[in-house]
Amino acid sequence: MIMSTAATEPLGRMAAMLRIRRFEEQCIRLAQAGQFRGHYHIYIGQEATAVAACAALVAEDFVFTTWRNHGHMLARGAAPERMLAEILGKAGGYAGGKSGTLHLAVRDLGILSTSALVGGTLPLATGAALACKQRGSGITVCFFGDAALEEGALYEAMILASLWQVPILFVCENNTMPPGQRARGQSPSSRLPANRLADIPEALRVTSEEVDGADADALNECLARLAAQVRSSGGPRYVEVHSGRWPGNFLSWPDLPGGEWQIAWAFGQQSDHADLAAWLEQSDPLNRYLRKLVAAGTLDRAQAEAMDERARAEMAGAVRFALDSPYPPPDEAYQHVYAQGGQAR
């Protein structure tokens, strides 16, 4: 079921962001407990982007994401228990354990296939947008990180999208590190020698703009407007979302510096982790949005806590489901190499 419509008003958006946050925390806990292996990527600090973008979509639209896909999946309506089961490589996962975290996808939600290759999805998404144009309905949203601009595939895809005028919304989620943090030996996710990345699509006649990834309302306005433009004009749009990198992403493997996110942090309490405290203040869309809603009287602390309780309970249930789900039988490895029926022999 596509749940994006529930996230079109403030409380729905807040709840959707909170669900992603609590999901990701559980994911880190499971990894640290050795419940799954391999590299994985966490969407903490970028939740508002997925929620705003998916709120602008309808059932027939397509979504392309990357290795950092958990937030997009949840915002589009994927079931957290089946996602976690997949992340653990279990039979109850969306791909029966074949994809793991890197390639989470749900065909029924218009998430056709998820590539973990930098830049890899841009041509694919452009093709899906071409299909939208051909069939005369729907649009495609393509999420990607800033490093995709380092790959030639991005430019080729954007040239096609512009030339063919296909209905695609390119969403660049720029979470690279500010120079100050790089000096401490942490690597940026991209090293692009451009003054303003959003100028690049403009040169190819793809209208582009920038928005603050920590400002849920601004994102909501921007992505709703751009999606509507793509839908009505049938042509491409590009948006660069700036997110301040969450300190849990500073190292090679995700971590929860300062522990799980606290509702209390939006009510005057401070995290005792210095990096995290600064990030919560400036860059955390969840913290900032909660404060804003409280200040506006939309939500009080008790309601926020009740909302959080629901998110935590849902994710705890998802963890149980994933842990209880069996591993697929070894023979499953041989299934799905080719689609059955009508293939060459």
Binding site: G89, K90, A95, G97, K98, S99, G100, Y327, P330, A333
Partner: peptide, 8 residues
């Protein structure tokens, strides 16, 4: 495949 049982 990703899953440890399938990879094995």
């Amino acid at each position: 495949p990703y899953s440890p049982t399938l990879e094995a």
